[in-house]
Design a protein around this nucleic acid. Structure first.
Lengths: 248, 248
DNA sequence: CGACATGTTGAACCTCATCAACCGACGTGG
DNA sequence: CCACGTCGGTTGATGAGGTTCAACATGTCG
């Protein structure tokens, strides 16, 4: 739970791992150079706080590697993860003086950070960039609402299966194939049991029990607590229930 | 549960009830005339479906009066309200071929509707309009995440109190004062018990019991099942718990 | 008036939270 | 080196909060 961002030098966008997939994909070469001039790589270790709730906005960023959790917490200690960011997602709440939630590194994380005011200036004078960010925000809103259904209406078993299904879709595979058709999948869980519980509105005990149950049923295998194999994604999808699964 | 939109003639934006508060507030007079040319008033009765899930997008709209619920449903009949629209909110998912959820009139509703392609054209060539819509979307995302905390982490009692608090903040008062400082409030519930349950991830019985409990505790009064008086909003806020209440 | 929709209340049941014990891995200091 | 504490995770026993099923009240409309 430290707070030790490691600041690195300027980055070369041309060779960036997420070039064309992140918001910067909206930019032509000249504009990209400008964004590259203001962008800085930063590293965080799992558990580091990246943005604190209610604090003034100081920067935005793109996730380059790792997973970031967005978290709401109440004074009495309850917490709820309200979003997960994977590469090449965008981090930060545009046009707000303060940050509406905590952003914390779930795994070790690399981001490409842009100073607040410089980025918003770029946004103002570049409608294509703003358009791209707008589309990203719309997708996030869709995802948030999808998750509201999970939180409000699904059983513990379905919640855990839904979570695994989500990770299977977004997390880079351990093996190699990056196409996820119905069929087998293999991935590493980027979250602890405690994080999973906070994401699903459950307790760690319930999460643990449901994972064990899914193992017993043969829907998944787990080794070392974190590495998950799903023999048949379709079956996992079925136990996830609900089926608003028209996610494209 | 019918589907009978009543189509009305063209509207005069100058005298519109929500002019300057809706997205159209981003437009200068000339552009407003253009939007006025494509906008049409429509009326719906409580229960009417306004947009159907998975259907091709045919129009966008601003809510002029009434309340619209955005709803997700699964094949087995479970449903979850994922958003409520009050005047002057914007209805519709920009840049998507299809609609990601049901939009249904919770009360009688008036909207100002813009045909799909004409509106998106206007959006493309008018960055100010898109910017305005972007800001609205960011607020919706904030609200959705706020609600994820409610769904995932609050007790039934807190959920119901949170709902009442939300309505108190957004619903026009029955009396006259439209300022809501800590103090008394009076409003009409725009949702049935069943809708409230679907918004909170509860059953109607639980909602009814919690409302009765709040009455017994003196936190609220209810007459005719729909008209609510809150002697002290601060107290309601306290029983709503959580306190991410930095809503500005 | 009867039929139907909306809402309230009671009783029984069940899912999930709570409390607690335990395990293995890891890191630290004596 | 091993004892120790800590952390993440699993499993069991128990009980509370909400769901489910059911009966009843109220209001509205033909």
């Amino acid at each position: 739970m430290g707070q030790a961002p490691i600041q690195l030098g300027r980055n070369g966008c041309e060779s960036c791992a997420i070039r064309n997939r992140a918001v910067c994909g909206a930019l032509d070469d000249a504009e990209l150079r400008e964004l590259g001039r203001i962008g800085r790589f930063r590293h965080y270790k799992a558990g580091d706080v990246i943005l604190a709730d209610q604090e003034p906005t100081t920067f935005f960023a793109n996730v380059v590697s790792g997973v970031i959790k967005l978290e709401k917490m109440s004074s009495d200690g309850r917490q709820q993860i309200v979003g997960l960011l994977f590469p090449p997602d965008f981090l930060g709440r545009a046009y707000s003086r303060t940050n509406p939630y905590f952003a914390q590194a779930a795994t070790d994380v690399e981001i490409c950070a842009y100073p607040h005011s410089q980025f918003e200036q770029l946004l103002r004078k570049n409608p294509e960039l703003e358009h791209r960010l707008f589309e990203d925000t719309l997708s996030e809103l869709d995802a948030a609402r999808e998750w509201m259904f999970v939180l409000g209406r699904k059983s513990a078993q379905e919640k855990v299966a839904s979570f695994l299904h989500l990770i299977a879709k977004r997390q880079p595979m351990i093996g190699c194939s990056h196409i996820h058709q119905p069929g087998p999948a293999r991935f590493e869980l980027p979250l602890t049991r405690s994080d999973i519980a906070d994401f699903l509105g459950l307790t760690i005990e319930t999460v643990s029990r449901q994972l064990s149950k899914l193992k017993r049923q043969g829907t998944i295998q787990i080794v070392g607590g974190r590495e998950v194999t799903v023999p048949d994604l379709r079956e996992l999808g079925l136990t996830a229930g609900g089926e608003n699964e028209a996610v494209a």
